[in-house]
Computed example of a mutant assay.
Amino acid sequence: MARGIARAVSFGGRATAGWCSYRRVTVAVCLGNLVAALLVLRSLTSHASFAPPAPNLGEVVLYTEEQIRMVEESIRIRREAEPVELVQEVKKLRKFFAREEKRRKELPLVLKQKVSYNIVGRLRDLGDNISVSEQREALDSWRVETLKDIKHASTQNQSSLGLSGEEARMLKRALEFNWYMLMEDIGLFIPEEVMHIEHDDKPENEPEEEEIIAGPPLSPQCNAELHTDYGGPAVRWGLTHHKESAADCCQACLDQAKNAKPGEMKCNIWVYCPSEFGCYSPDKYEHKHQECWLKHDDNPKLNFKDKYSESYRNSHPTAPVVVPWMSGVISA
């Protein structure tokens, strides 16, 4: 019996040793890891199961007949409220003014010079002591007379200004629709007639501060005047004519007058913008630093001098206190 028990124990030990082999232990560990991974994955996906379902983008929303009727009614009311006729008229006006602006820009330089000579001659005949209102009346009278002359001379293909038929037609449209723009193109500006009241609040015996102008010194022939803006028909358009200094602008005026061809206006007025912030002007353009205007006028007249009056600044809120331009009338 003892031998039998010993044999049984020996057999059990061999069986246990066979079951605990390295291969079976490795398989058991792998199975345990797999079960753990499945449990972790289940715990992660279980949270997503509580999230609200995503909307179905392909789902069609059904409206009731009453809702559809209300939507159609609102669309009808909105369309009826639109100022269709007004919008169409505005579009027509925009097209019209765009065509007129294009035609104004197409006016030849020779035609603009003829108009400038004729207007300057009309103003010169009135004398030097005429008021601003008288100048405006003279210009309006010249415009009306010129339009009548062009209409009467249309059959003869020649006007008293010496214009051809095509030039007369172009000038007629400019006088009828672009009169103020034409005056800007030829450099003619009639300032408003205002009362200039001087306010001197500076203490007595206080020395004047000398203003420094950048660039080389100006020639005495330039007759430079600070804070001054002279008028007159433009010989050279300043928006596209910039100079490094006031001296260069004055020299450009002298050179133009020296090299002008017969029949051309000779520069005798220069107007320069020395301010780095640009210079104010009552027209529609933005005048920038170093603009140099070359003008001609047999009787130069001031637009503005030293300071803009209080009444002028009240009617022109964007105007500064001090005139930013500097000008000069070339001495012969």
Rank of each mutant, 00 (worst) to 15 (best):
A246P: 00
S219R: 04
L302S: 10
R78N: 12
P203V: 05
A174K: 03
L31N: 04
S219G: 01
V323N: 03
F304V: 05
V110C: 12
A37P: 01
K172C: 12
R78S: 14
L34K: 11
E73H: 09
P282N: 00
D297W: 09
A54I: 13
Q290F: 04
G238C: 02
T228Y: 11
Y230D: 01
N129P: 09
E193Q: 14
E137V: 15
K284Y: 04
M183A: 10
A247Y: 01
N314H: 13
H152S: 15
Y272P: 01
G58P: 00
S131C: 08
W325Y: 07
S309K: 04
P55D: 07
A2D: 07
S327I: 04
R79P: 05
N268M: 03
S159K: 06
S21P: 00
A247M: 08
R7S: 06
S116M: 14
C222S: 03
A319C: 01
N268F: 00
Y280G: 09
E198N: 08
S21D: 10
K95S: 10
P83Y: 08
G12K: 01
I150R: 07
M265T: 07
P83F: 08
S309E: 01
R23E: 08
R69M: 12
V9R: 06
W270I: 00
E264W: 11
W142K: 11
R78G: 13
R99E: 08
P262T: 12
A54F: 13
I150G: 05
V29H: 01
L62T: 14
S141W: 11
L302G: 02
K92R: 14
G278E: 03
D200I: 05
R94L: 13
E184M: 10
